[in-house]
Amino acid sequence: MNHRIWLAALALAATFAHAQDNSAQEANVGPAAAAAERFLAAVDKGDVTGSYNEMAGASRLMVTLQQWDGAMKTVRAPLGRLESRRMVTAVPTRNLPGAPEGDYVVIQYNTRFSKLPDDQMAIETVTPMLDRDGNWHVSGYYVKQVPHRELKD
């Protein structure tokens, strides 16, 4: 086989494999978003145990239920009740800083809470991962208050 043809075939195979990998990662968005929604529903109700049970096994090993309860009282409760939430991005990835390689989807929401000033909203970042049990569970949750002008569309 001619070297150019062989290299072209190799490049085509690599491109096809990359496309399949991207397609598989994109397929993760739906199940990951469903896990994020279950988690957020529990958080919104103030169901600390329910939200904790939706967390990934590795996250539960790093944070006790009591620590999670304290975090929810410190971070989430002061924001008040949920008024609106809109998913703005869902990005599948295999690598996150400080985390082992795996299947993750980083999901961001523009969220309005009742106790935020009128000129502010929140960006909630929820990161589900495909856990060892073969199901999607949340490995990270972060809330940042921002002025309206800093929100993604």
Rank of each mutant, 00 (worst) to 15 (best):
A11T: 09
A13F: 09
A13G: 01
A17E: 08
A19Q: 01
D21P: 00
N22T: 11
A24E: 10
A27P: 06
A27W: 10
G30M: 15
P31C: 12
A33D: 11
A33G: 08
A35P: 02
A36T: 00
E37Q: 12
R38H: 14
F39I: 05
L40T: 02
A41R: 06
V43G: 05
D44R: 01
S51A: 04
N53Q: 02
G57L: 00
G57M: 04
M62I: 09
M72Q: 12
M72P: 03
K73L: 10
T74W: 14
V75M: 13
A77Q: 15
P78N: 14
L79T: 09
G80Y: 13
R81V: 12
L82E: 00
E83R: 08
S84W: 01
V88W: 03
V88I: 09
A90T: 07
T93C: 04
R94N: 12
L96F: 10
P97A: 15
G98V: 13
G102E: 10
V105M: 07
V105L: 03
T111N: 03
F113Y: 15
L116V: 10
D118I: 12
D118V: 15
D119V: 05
Q120L: 07
A122G: 05
T125V: 05
L130E: 04
D133V: 01
W136S: 00
V138H: 00
V143P: 01
R149V: 11
E150R: 13
D153C: 06
